[in-house]
Amino acid sequence: MPSIIFFHPDGRRQQIEASEGESAMQAATRHDISGILAECGGNAMCATCHVYVDEAWLARLPAMGGDEDALLDGAAAERQANSRLSCQIRLAADLDGLVLSLPDRQT
């Protein structure tokens, strides 16, 4: 079971247990992580599941698709080089311990 560590904008750390095969967004909403809205339910259509990926993990994530790239340009919080949509991060054993920071806003 991969775990994910979230950092809230105020620095608070929250660790959750995810299931293999689900997305980081699904794990976050299941555990009621407040900074993830996921208004489109994971369809890569809303950009309200935006996260900043810890540098150490960035290269280990699958490449971003064109939809994701375009959506991130419109994300409510500033897009950075390590911005991703958490609904597009599928969790596997090799992502155990993934560190994600939450933006200060999603809308």
Partner: peptide, 8 residues
């Protein structure tokens, strides 16, 4: 999707 994007 582009015409009605978050940026739009």
């Amino acid at each position: 999707a582009q015409v009605l994007s978050p940026t739009a």
